[in-house]
Design a protein around this nucleic acid. Sequence first.
DNA 1: TTTGGCACTCCGTCCGCGGGACTGCCAGCA
DNA 2: TGCTGGCAGTCCCGCGGACGGAGTGCCAAA
Lengths: 356, 356
Amino acid sequence: MASRHELHDHDIDPRAREVLREIILQHITNGEPIGSRTLAKCGKFQLSPASLRNVMADLEDLGFLQQPHTSAGRIPTDRGYRFFINNLMKSHALTQREREVIDEEVGNASEIEDVLHLSGSLLSKMSDQVGVIFMPTLLQFVIRSMDFILVAENKIMCVAVGANGVVVNKVIETRYVFSRDELEKISRFITTEYTGCTLDVIRRRLIRLTEQERAQHDQMLQKTISLGIEAVNDVAPFEHELYVEGAASILNKPEFSDAVSLRKTFLALQEKEKLIDILETCLSEEGLQILVGSESDFTQTHNFSIVARRYGSTSAPLGMVGIIGPMRMEYARMAPLVDYLSRALSRKIEEEQVEQ
Amino acid sequence: MASRHELHDHDIDPRAREVLREIILQHITNGEPIGSRTLAKCGKFQLSPASLRNVMADLEDLGFLQQPHTSAGRIPTDRGYRFFINNLMKSHALTQREREVIDEEVGNASEIEDVLHLSGSLLSKMSDQVGVIFMPTLLQFVIRSMDFILVAENKIMCVAVGANGVVVNKVIETRYVFSRDELEKISRFITTEYTGCTLDVIRRRLIRLTEQERAQHDQMLQKTISLGIEAVNDVAPFEHELYVEGAASILNKPEFSDAVSLRKTFLALQEKEKLIDILETCLSEEGLQILVGSESDFTQTHNFSIVARRYGSTSAPLGMVGIIGPMRMEYARMAPLVDYLSRALSRKIEEEQVEQ
DNA sequence: TTTGGCACTCCGTCCGCGGGACTGCCAGCA
DNA sequence: TGCTGGCAGTCCCGCGGACGGAGTGCCAAA
């Protein structure tokens, strides 16, 4: 950090700041490079185009602006956006109506997965960007209950409920044949015995239990353990989930208008691993996070920006929710939107928890 | 039908048939209009370009070919494709390897939803088209069991298993508070009492039960009915599902290369209702179905073709599986692919059923 | 320090042209 | 009668040049 020449507030005079601000605002709305003439005509500066040219040249030297080619206007660099976000942006709050819509949508669904899905597509619709919702593995979370249901003769569905209200189910094929009675008993046993443990702990305890003498003779206990281990062993269903909603919205964006970059962008959104990587690192930070272009591998190669925020209770963050779009996006609107939605989500989840 | 001039085998002489066949084959592989010269050079005809031109003109008169513009080669019309599919196509069987891959992939997953998902994306990968899987409502199917699980104080997850092995779950919020004990009893009651009924029947019977005197006094029964009705009432989770997999594959297709038609096409695939409409009508037919371009509303407006087939046991078809792509697709490969996969799927489902 | 002026650069578009790939038609030939 | 070569005509496509527009940098004057 120290080696990189850090730019502070005072490194850039107020007039230049205003110019930068105006350029970015204009460029965000129309997507085109801004020239000195257009800038002069907007009326906010009592300056001639020539003077503005000087200011713009300075801003280019500082690395905030760039020219797509000689004799074109200027567009912001990612560094420019960063400065804008940190120092110049006045985010305009959501309207009453918008907040209502969010509250309503989020409040509506009851299963967590649905809530997340809905939030994602709502976010996508309201922002006209791609909405992403990341829910990390259930593995590290505390289990509230675990039930087993007979689905077919040797197929059993295991429903695990996390303390955070997440419900996960998976179907397992079993060697033994279980009756409904037995399954009820097993459900009870595991739920009462292991409530409050993480899946990982449960597995280890079950394995330890196998080794105890009591288990060797108690056939019912044996079956219980066998089933429990099978349920917990293959953890794939408990792994992270990433919902990408409204990917079609990038079709509108002029920055992805040609078929080639469109294709690339689309495929990029399919590669969920990379996205998960980023979101996972963001998970440690508390507030709203904005990643612009070169600030991460993924966003750099695709000229994306990400606006995201953690959701879940402050004590136990659940995942990340946010939007992905071209660097040129209305940060001033995206920021409060993502912020509000993530808070609404968190509130919703908090409620779920209180209920139990 | 009678009013439309139907074309029979004998309406078109063998040589013209071969020419049409060759044109379509070539156009399918390279996507470009075929001229008389290229056709002559392929070596299959001992004819001069001029003669071929005559044949082609005839084929155009019959409505099998068309010219994008004067002085371009010819491309097939949807009618041409239809004739090709009905009379000229020699579908080449899948390779041993391909069949193995399908069997393996389909055999792997255990939960039906997973199987469907996998099949869809497998289909998309193997065909390089968009894979669709349609599973119609569970409403009309017979229920094998119904279980209720405590998820939170006033939240209960209902897991319904259909006779066809489909597992559906939904979370309901309840007015009463239920204990685990009660839920077990209720699960048992409903499962034993109503196994073999459709959801619709269950609902009607439950409602009738409310009206009986016995129910007025038996508090447990009241609670049972209340829960059962709540579970069955909002049927949205039991409604059709449509999985569209590999939508990105249309990005490759030259027919959708310009940004505008690409955008349209993409949005079309989002509109699941229309797709469901088509697939639902196809559901009544038994064998492999191919819809070309103008043969349905949806395919016409987007210049799609659909190759699909019913899956599920013959007595109780479950849904449709197929691919969607541009009219210009390798029908000779798509047909056996979809056919085989749908059979593999059906076999898999049959197995599930036998197990119970 | 600001401004107007000027020369310059680069992009996008339009236009005209020629080549290429067809077709349809016609006349001649088996 | 059916096939073929030839010929005129049509249309697309790509290329190159010209031109206008937008914007810049620099310089000299206010």
